[in-house]
Design a protein around this nucleic acid. Structure first.
Lengths: 187, 187
DNA sequence: CCAAAATGATTAACATGTTAAGTTAAATGG
DNA sequence: CCATTTAACTTAACATGTTAATCATTTTGG
């Protein structure tokens, strides 16, 4: 992720130069687009991450790697599948990242003896040291953001986002294999 | 993007099995993590996009390609740099996507005669047809989401997101080359 | 106990995110 | 008018997002 408003220039200059005045059929502008919900969420998230990326990058970790390490730092040991849920990453991404983090000795993995398919992950001392090095700065940034936006607003926003998520998770996906929730009465 | 809650299973099962009870030093849980603002924004956006992806995919376009085509459909012609801003994509991504969309005859490009560095993009009839094929369904989904979450809440959420964005854009980035806004008195 | 279905995790393949380097053309400053 | 600098893209290179396929291991149902 991360878009820093491509080619940011100082002076304001009209966002879309030769807009409007179509040549042929004047189709409906279609929900302004730039103000659609997905776009608003994307822009907001980028505005947030923009502040974290530099320090993370300085310490040699990506945003996703950081999510994993941070999750591990407060859990001690966890299975891969559960880690995927906690760090909100898809399996394939997680597999690649774990491979890399293991090579860098930031994490360790073991196979569950009772089920050889499963693997457990834990953070190493080196990994913890990295966390401890980055966390303070990260927390400071978070605090500054909270101060600027307002603690109450921030809290409200989070509630609204959570509600949005749960509302939409309850909404059936049209053309998708909704293996989601179907009040389990398995088989 | 898109994470569909890795391995979604029907029955609720504790999110993080062997959590807590660390072996060694009990470090602070650190802002719950899973409830951090970046995570909330990510999850919310995914909850939204999850509903659009299937139909887009069915019509052979990715989310980003769709953003571009949709932007073009209401603008008729636009320069690459401006398109990057409107579709909120970084230059390199845009270059690759435009190359692909051009090969598929969904867009056309011309060089600006007065400045050979610049290029202008416009959507083709074929591209418009694609838009018209997908848009209705897309709008229907958007309407359903609005209905479920509530039009007023949605509007409020957007306002809050926009405010968050502007608040954070005004906040200086710590370790970054802030070529951003510095009250222009160029040179 | 065994063949078939289900699971957990990884690999494959392709598109995009992201930062750093080019490339070509235009604007600038002698 | 010309060497620098700047601007607008494009490429390169590497990490992740995403969906499909593959693998090994377990669980199921006979």
């Amino acid at each position: 992720m991360g878009l820093k408003t491509p080619s940011r220039d100082s002076r304001p200059r009209e966002a879309v130069p030769a807009a409007a005045s179509n040549t042929g059929a004047a189709q409906a502008p279609m929900r302004e687009f730039s103000r659609s919900l997905p776009m608003a969420l994307l822009r907001a998230r980028e505005a947030v991450m923009r502040h974290f990326r530099p320090s993370l990058r300085a310490d040699g970790v990506t945003e996703q790697q950081w999510r994993i390490l941070r999750a591990l730092s407060s859990i001690d040991i966890i299975e891969v599948t559960d880690l995927a849920r906690v760090a909100y990453l898809l399996g394939p991404s997680l597999s690649r990242i774990l491979r890399d983090l293991e090579a860098r000795r930031l994490i360790e993995r073991k196979t569950v003896k009772s089920d050889l398919r499963r693997g457990t992950i834990s953070i190493t001392a080196k990994g913890l040291k990295l966390i401890e090095a980055v966390a303070p700065h990260s927390e400071a940034i978070y605090a500054e953001m909270t101060k600027r936006y307002g603690a109450q607003k921030l809290s409200d926003l989070q509630d609204m986002l959570n509600l949005l998520e749960s509302s939409l998770l309850a909404m059936p996906v049209h053309g998708g294999n909704n293996d989601a929730d179907d009040s389990g009465d398995d088989k």
